[in-house]
Computed example of a mutant assay.
Amino acid sequence: MATSKIGKKKTWSCQYPARRKFLDWSKRTHFIDGIARGLLYLHQDSRLSIVHRDIKASNILLDKELNPKISDFGLARMFGGDQTEANTKRVVGTYGYMSPEYALDGHFSVKSDVFSFGVLVLEIVSGKKNRGFCHPDYNQNLLGHAWMLWFNGIPLELIDECFADSCTPSEALRFIHVALLCVQQRPEDRPDMSSVVLMLRSENPLPRPKQPGFFMGSNPSEKDTSSNKNQSCSAN
């Protein structure tokens, strides 16, 4: 079955008016729901719990019905029995999607994938990529920008202007809220994917998110230069 990558720039950039209309709000919410259910299956419903370790836009494929499929399991780690987390001396993955505890200490768990999912949701909602985005006023990446908007009470300004008039504000607000819960600094503060799936479509009140794991005022090129001395990352 033919597939395409959700992460290709031409897929959801506002520079392509035809695709802007094609990938409307309902399709993007379908992507978010499908990716969440896919991660839930890997973490909880498969025979062995699987941590993907490289959830990012370019590793989400779309079939001909535009159903999202998680791909590239080259870095995946299977856990058996009661094992749910591990440490590694060789950090691999993609900057911009890696959780702080994995990028800095090599510690990964299902909560590492939750963090990556949160980044991906913010990218889908905003139409911007976390890596390379830098707000001109306060020099933050996409996670920092989303947090500042949330903190200032204007989170809906994060929404991609391509469909700002067609999306459901309450639904968009909930997706942003859930994403911020997923990218919190401490892994124990993040929800698991079963909770995420429920929160995405529930109308129940959500807990207040804490500050996300991001580097304030960081320069992506400088961060890559220093990190690549002892680490390896896949191309995005």
Rank of each mutant, 00 (worst) to 15 (best):
W12R: 07
T88M: 01
Q140I: 01
G81M: 06
I159P: 03
C14M: 05
L75D: 03
V121Q: 02
A76Q: 03
S58P: 02
N67C: 04
S126M: 15
N236P: 03
Q211F: 15
K10R: 08
C134F: 13
D54H: 00
M193K: 01
K10L: 02
K64M: 14
S194T: 12
G74D: 04
N141P: 06
L42F: 12
H43P: 13
G74E: 04
L158C: 13
P209E: 14
K10F: 10
V91F: 00
F214R: 13
S4T: 12
D54F: 01
H52W: 06
N141G: 07
G34S: 12
I35Y: 15
A235K: 07
G213S: 05
Y16F: 15
R47I: 09
F22H: 10
P220S: 13
V110C: 00
P169W: 10
A103F: 03
L66F: 10
P212T: 10
F31I: 12
H30V: 10
L200P: 03
W150E: 09
T225S: 15
A146Y: 01
V119D: 02
W12G: 01
F31A: 14
I50W: 04
Y138H: 14
K210D: 02
D189I: 00
N59F: 14
S221R: 10
I32E: 05
I124C: 07
G81N: 12
F163N: 10
S195K: 03
V197S: 13
S49L: 03
L156K: 05
A172Y: 14
L149A: 06
E101T: 07
S4L: 09
C233P: 00
T88Q: 00
V114I: 12
S46G: 10
R28C: 07
R90Y: 00
M148R: 08
R20E: 07
H43C: 07
L62P: 05
L66T: 07
N59H: 11
T168M: 15
R186M: 02
N236M: 04
S195T: 05
S13E: 08
C233M: 04
A146G: 02
D113G: 03
L104K: 08
Y138R: 10
R90D: 00
T88C: 01
K210I: 04
H30T: 08
G38T: 11
N152F: 14
Q15G: 10
P155E: 09
G96E: 04
P212V: 06
D189G: 00
G132F: 06
H135Y: 15
Q211V: 14
H177P: 07
Q211R: 09
A57I: 06
F215W: 10
I60D: 06
S221P: 05
K10A: 11
F108D: 00
L39C: 15
S218K: 12
L198N: 04
H135S: 15
G153H: 09
K229L: 11
L66E: 04
L40E: 02
